[in-house]
Write a protein that binds this DNA or RNA. Structure first.
Lengths: 216, 216
DNA sequence: GGGATTCCTTGACAGTTGTCAAGATCGGCA
DNA sequence: TGCCGATCTTGACAACTGTCAAGGAATCCC
């Protein structure tokens, strides 16, 4: 029984000893090449042959490790986003007051925009395509929810530190910061060198402005 | 001399009398079919043959009226967005106070989300693809600027009516409302029936919260 | 009516895509 | 060593794409 069969029909048990590790390692390797290509070219222009060209293998191997293109892409994106959704947790945990939190948060936003530009671009591409392709929807909805939680941890902690409450819904709080970030990313990619500076300033202002006196 | 040659090399003068109107009318007709198809399938899945299938003509006619796919798409999107970028101007002009303005604005946001769902989805698709494809960038940057102006007219008028100033940058103000709208659109398309209600509430809150006491 | 021009269709082209089957190659175990 | 399964390559497939040339059909003007 081949690994491929096991993975594609995961109902089967795992009889292998060390082979699983090797199999999963190869999957991860191919998924990383997938992410690199997707971030560079976008979902529409990325072909399996182009992904394989970024590895030491030929294009056929992708169908040995993944059922089809959708599984390859979703596996890769899920793998990456796992590292993202806790990105600000240290800041949330360690900031002593509201002003420090907002400043560090804004700084981290700018930092990841500059460091992981291609990956963020890929994420927005994927999320937009999910509006047309239901096959991508489960992955996107799931990750979006995690990102919403991540932002909410920042926003609600800020409210806590400032002894206020948040004026927007959970989804709304995520949406406004996401919009701020997406806008800055787009301008940055279009050559606007002032985009990241504005992002930092606007993020601080916005976080402060979303706080409102507690009702109780 | 054919129309096509004239249009493709617009340096030439216009020798025709009534032909121009007919030519432009046909272009508009084909552009509308293009928009309908793009809104339904998305940029990646829309082929010229599929667009033509939505008209009474065959696929070859598209290359008679448009140089290539990019010109067809950008022409269509520009044509549509011209009707959008003044969408809230009547509200801005006629609202007597800040509360009325914010309420009507939020209502209009929800209304266009529901009425023009496919077109907004298409716009976000196009804007995202422009992050990967420079051929789309000029059109997207241009329209984005117009949308930014449109939102700014609402926000700055609201500040004026409330005798306050806006706490965010122009780009930031646009970005947060755009994020709110895009998030609601995505959730609406994913089947979340509460998305539009939250959009309305969040928009009112956000518009109010962006106002800050004047410095002078 | 007839010729010229505009408009539109047809069919083909070269290239690309996801998918998969057949077989080569590698690695470990007997 | 020789076998066998896991791994990988190769080549092909059918479908699809944007583009365009050749020609039919419609229309207009004299």
């Amino acid at each position: 029984m081949s690994h491929a069969t096991q993975e594609i029909a995961p109902a089967g048990g795992r009889f292998e000893r060390a082979g699983i590790d090797k199999f999963e390692a190869r999957r991860a390797e191919l998924a990383d090449a997938t992410l690199a290509t997707l971030g560079e070219l976008g979902l529409a222009r990325t072909s399996l042959r182009e992904i394989a060209q970024k590895t030491d293998f030929s294009h056929g191997v992708l169908h040995y490790y993944f059922r089809d293109k959708v599984e390859l892409i979703t596996f890769g994106v899920r793998r990456y986003k796992e590292h993202c959704v806790t990105r600000y947790d240290a800041i949330v945990a360690e900031s002593p007051d509201a002003a420090t939190l907002s400043g560090r948060f804004a700084h981290a936003l700018v930092a990841t925009l500059l460091d992981d530009t291609a990956m963020h671009r890929l994420w927005y591409d994927l999320r937009t395509q999910a509006m047309f392709d239901d096959a991508l929807l489960p992955t996107v909805v799931d990750l979006d929810r995690q990102l919403e939680e991540m932002v909410w941890r920042v926003v609600s902690r800020h409210a806590e530190l400032a002894d206020t409450r948040v004026a927007l819904s959970r989804a709304g709080a995520y949406a406004v910061f996401d919009g701020l970030f997406e806008g800055a990313l787009q301008r940055h990619l279009a050559g606007d060198t002032t985009a990241t500076g504005r992002l930092r300033d606007d993020a601080v202002v916005l976080l402060t402005r979303l706080m409102v006196a507690p009702t109780s």
